[in-house]
């Protein structure tokens, strides 16, 4: 299965831009995982941890994010967060 295009951007810089297997995002109404081919979707974020799975079954990279929103579109997943720390 094709990889998911994932971008994490804060106002100050682009934190991450990579092709990954899956990302679990802390949405306001619950966490959700995004893989390639996800339906178009948009939600605001709550403060929490973003888990990035580079490959299937890999140990996730955890990034603390706060405030912002996530958008899933044809181009993949874009997370715009106000703060992001690995």
């Amino acid at each position: 299965m094709a990889d998911l295009r994932f971008e994490l951007v804060t106002p100050e810089r682009q934190v991450m831009a990579a092709d990954v297997h899956m990302v679990v995002v802390p949405g306001t109404e619950g966490e959700f995982g995004v893989m390639a081919g996800h339906a178009p979707f948009m939600t605001t974020l709550r403060d929490g941890e973003l888990a990035v799975y580079r490959t299937a079954g890999a140990t996730p990279e955890r990034i603390t994010v706060g405030g912002g929103f996530a958008e899933v579109g044809d181009r993949g997943l874009t997370v715009l967060a106000e703060r992001a720390e690995a």
């Binding site: 306001t28 109404e29 339906a39 979707f41 948009m42 939600t43 605001t44 929103f69 579109g73």
Partner: peptide, 16 residues
């Protein structure tokens, strides 16, 4: 595109 919004458009907008 048919985009699904969570919570809904207005709430997101109010936040953004």
């Amino acid at each position: 595109a048919v985009v699904e919004y969570e919570p809904d458009e207005e709430a997101i907008l109010a936040d953004l």
